[in-house]
Design a protein around this nucleic acid. Structure first.
Length: 872
DNA sequence: AAGCTCACG
DNA sequence: ACGTACGTGAGCTTT
């Protein structure tokens, strides 16, 4: 079916104008709408592959509707100054892109859209309408879908009849009735006073149309509503009329007028340059690069793979055949609950060589289920999945260990483009089959995954990510599944008691603060707090945020001596954080004495893991009061101990390895305290002469290096003048010129490649390097400096986790948590010595660098009382 | 849903 | 003259 894209130029331009910051050309002409609109258009072009497209614009002044109702759109503000000229720029660019434009004196874009839609439907096209205007929902039909901009313009929500029903329980033709009753302030459609969306919907669910509501007005519940309906009956009818999009326009067009022609670089690039549209230009290039680099085929359409109906006997035979012939299977799974908590599989979709199957838990016999689970636990059947960690957890709930994982498509997609937000099956398929909209059933989902799999494999291979995927990320997902499933033991009683103590102090602090402020207010509200501190108490203001006064800890620390309430607030903040996030947060998550976090493996841009629900990677440690919390984490088995292993200075060691800077390398080779050594070099003194203050400064410099050092950042971190931080940085780079050269080189190369890589070849694209905004570009430079370092640390830790998981097998010990450069295990006391030795050995040698890696082990009865442990 | 604040590496 | 250290997730308030 040919596909037509219709864009509401005015509506989308307005959205873009308000959603985006005020960008301009070098000579000051506004361009934010151009950015927003064109970005969207390019994306649509790439994802939807239109056969026809058109952008409709209002041709204002005397519209037909003004004759009907003088108030119509009277409310509407004048087009803002920054927006008006952009319509002309936009039309100029669209013309160069060969995008058909449509406008007609006296008519709004709305009406043109309605008219085109009607004709296109008659010609049997599929129609997609893009707008921010909900009125368009009235045009929904089996052939026509509406795509509404959600927040800003970057997110789009698709509406068909089903989606509309789910959202409002209305049919498309009732949208005008809805507007008739509730009105629309932005279009100044009056509606009926006192009737908003909720009441209007209720009325329409009962009476279907405005006319029917009015006929049956006596049956309407609610006195006020009823009397308003009577009084404003005419206005309701008129409002409905105003909301109706006109399909009769004095214009005939043929589909020829709207044919999609591929935009020509020779015409488009110059006009993009004319308006300084560097981002859009970059997008243009990216699109063409991507097409060259990746095996995307815009014409690709999924094949329909037939589903075979299966009796119990068929299933048993089929499973036996797969097993004996070691057939590779692609699997999709529907389940209830989460993979982790009481999750149960409901349906499996299976795809194999052009055929698909559905295994339904309700229908399948016990025998078939057992045979199937046998297949899942078999190393000999290669499996392609979209989310192996969840599947592994679901199978573990059935007592089966997932084996034979051949390809995890979510992980593959993450490695190809780590910044891509979603990795659900549909998103994965859409990456190569952009026109795929929904899966009819689980079998079709499996078939789609099976067809997308070779494309992922190909791109993974092209990008040099094969071993990172198959040898690290995929096996790691199964290790993470085990860790999540095991969980970590927590003592809820102690935690509650801890919370009770905090509560008491918190109440007292609250009273003290109210007394000192001489009024009660919400201390948790930065806005109210700001008013009290900076207006009522007239404390000196230092920093401001977008929305008002800044009241963060750094600001308040400055004011500590200015008023006694400030210290109380700082205490309150600290305790309140402990109470809400940690005491209450963790208590809510504890089940049967354990906490099971979820490790996210496809979230960070650098390759690190993250931890959610709850986040166990940010349990307090820096301040003693919060650190106490760690007492509640303990081993699950009586008598066992917790064992932790920390990489020491892993990121600086990686920097040393990358840069081969002689001083930095030597420092590690000699196993010196690296911060003391840095201080000695920067201040030009001997190691013995370094004071603790000098060491502290040097430590901050070392930290900063990894982040992409700036004078500003260092001065803020150390609380020193910019001049001083500048001096430190200069001194540092004089002594450590190898580091300087490396950091310069990595940025230069990143600008050439548009990406950086870690030691294990993990890739991060850095589009920020091409941004027109200098701040953004510098951000890109810091990313280029930081990602290889942070990412390599993540690579090495992941590799170490695999080796440790393997090494733990002979022992009574479990891996519990990973906190970026630390692993936490629980161990039976008789195995402690051996496990600690293995742990240190495997971590230190996971991926040898040119400088030694060191790992510090600690042991204790809980996560608070950890003492250094040196194996013999 | 966005902004602020703050916990961790 | 600007606005900045890198990477996360959660709770709370305000819009």
């Amino acid at each position: 079916m040919p596909r037509m894209l219709i864009l509401d130029g005015n509506s989308l331009a307005n959205r873009a104008f308000y959603a985006l910051p005020p960008l301009t050309t070098a000579d000051g002409r506004p361009t934010n709408v151009l950015h927003g609109f064109l970005t969207m258009l390019f994306k649509l072009e790439q994802e939807q592959h239109p056969d026809y497209w058109v952008v409709a614009f209002d041709k204002t002044k005397a519209t037909v509707r003004i004759e009907q109702y003088a108030g119509y759109k009277a409310q509407r503000k004048e087009t803002p100054e920054g927006l008006r000229p952009q319509f002309d720029y936009l039309k100029e660019i669209l013309a160069e892109m060969d995008v058909p434009l449509l406008e007609l004196a006296g008519y709004e874009a709305d009406d043109l859209i309605a008219a085109i839609t009607k004709q296109a439907e008659a010609q049997g096209m599929e129609i997609q309408i893009y707008t921010g205007d909900k009125d368009a929902l009235q045009l929904i039909s089996p052939r026509t879908n509406i795509f509404l901009t959600k927040k800003g313009i970057s997110e789009i929500e698709r509406y068909d009849e089903t989606a509309l029903w789910e959202r409002y329980q209305l049919r498309p033709h009732q949208i005008i009735d809805l507007k008739g009753l509730m009105g629309d302030t932005s279009d100044n459609i009056p509606g009926v006073p006192g009737i908003g969306e909720k009441t209007a919907l209720k009325l329409l669910w009962e009476f279907e149309t405005v006319e029917n509501v009015l006929t049956n007005v006596e049956k309407v519940s609610g006195k006020k509503v009823q009397s308003n309906l009577k009084e404003y009956a005419d206005q309701a009818i008129l409002s409905k009329k105003l909301a109706t999009m006109l399909t009769e326009v004095p214009l005939t067009f043929s589909s020829e007028d709207f044919i999609y022609r591929r935009p020509q670089a020779s015409k488009v690039l110059p006009v993009l340059q004319k308006y300084d549209l560097r981002n859009v230009t970059r997008l243009w290039h990216e699109r063409h690069n991507d097409e060259g680099l990746l095996s995307e085929n815009s014409e690709a359409v999924l094949e329909t793979w037939p589903e075979r109906a299966m009796s119990e006997e068929d299933w048993l035979l089929q499973i036996a055949e797969w097993k004996s012939q070691k057939k590779p299977l692609t699997l999709a799974c529907r389940y209830k609950g989460t993979g982790l908590q009481g999750g149960q599989w409901l349906e499996w979709g299976v795809a194999n060589q052009g055929e698909t199957f559905t295994l339904d838990r309700e229908e399948a016999s016990e025998k078939v289920c057992q045979a199937w689970l046998g297949l899942m636990g078999s190393d000999e059947i290669p499996k392609t999945l979209a989310d192996s960690k969840t599947v592994a957890l679901l199978l573990a709930n059935e007592g089966v260990k997932l084996k034979g994982l051949a390809l995890d498509l979510s992980l593959a997609s993450y490695l190809i483009q780590s910044s891509r937000p979603k990795f659900a099956p549909l998103d994965l398929v859409k990456e190569y089959f952009p026109s795929q909209d929904v899966f009819a059933n689980i079998a079709e989902e499996a078939a789609a995954l099976a067809q997308v799999a070779p494309k992922f494999e190909e791109d993974i291979s092209t990008l040099g990510l094969t071993s990172l995927l198959h040898e690290i990320e995929e096996p790691l997902s199964l290790v993470l599944a085990q860790m999540e499933r095991h969980g970590i033991a927590i003592d809820s009683e102690t935690l509650k008691a801890f919370g009770d103590g905090i509560s008491l102090t918190l109440k007292q602090l609250e009273q003290d603060i109210y007394a000192l402020a001489e009024e009660t207010f919400n201390i948790n509200s930065p806005k109210q707090l700001g008013t009290i501190l900076f207006e009522k108490l007239s404390l000196p203001t230092a920093k401001k945020t977008k929305t008002g006064y800044s009241t963060d800890a750094e600001t308040l620390e400055e004011l500590r001596t200015a008023h006694p309430v400030v210290a109380k607030i700082l205490d309150y903040r600290q305790l309140n954080k402990l109470m809400s996030t940690y005491v209450n947060g963790l208590l809510a998550q504890a089940k049967e004495g354990r906490i099971h976090t979820t490790f996210q493996q496809t979230v960070t841009t650098t390759g690190r893991l993250s931890s959610t629900e709850p986040n166990l990677q940010n349990i307090p440690i820096r301040l003693e009061q919060g650190r106490q919390l760690r007492k509640v984490f303990h081993p699950t088995e009586p008598g066992w101990v917790l064992l932790s292993a920390d990489y020491s200075q892993i990121e600086l060691r990686i920097l040393a390895h990358y840069s081969q800077d002689p001083l930095l390398c030597e420092s590690f080779a000699l196993r010196q305290d690296v911060h003391t050594r840095t201080a000695a070099e920067v201040f030009g003194i001997s190691l013995e002469e370094v004071t603790s203050d000098m060491r502290r400064s040097a430590k901050a410099v070392n930290f900063g290096l990894v982040y992409g050092l700036t004078e500003f950042g260092l001065s803020r971190d150390l609380g020193i003048p910019r001049k001083e931080s500048k001096f430190y940085i200069e001194q540092y780079f004089k002594r450590y010129s190898g580091v300087k050269r490396y950091l310069e080189d990595v940025v230069t190369q990143a600008k050439i490649d548009g990406q950086v890589r870690t030691l294990l070849n993990r890739l991060r694209r850095i589009p920020e390097l091409l941004h027109s905004n200098r701040v953004q570009r510098q951000f890109g430079e810091r990313i280029a400096m930081n990602t290889p370092v942070q990412g390599t640390a993540a690579d090495i830790m992941k590799l170490a986790m695999l080796k440790v998981a393997e090494g733990l097998k002979p022992f009574q010990a479990t891996m519990l948590l990973q906190v970026h450069d630390e692993l936490l295990l629980q161990v039976a006391p008789e195995d402690l010595e051996n496990v600690a030795r293995m742990l240190k050995e495997q971590m230190e040698n996971a991926y040898p660098l040119t400088v030694p890696m060191t790992v510090e082990c600690k042991v204790g009865p809980n996560w608070y009382e950890m003492q250094p442990f040196h194996s013999i």
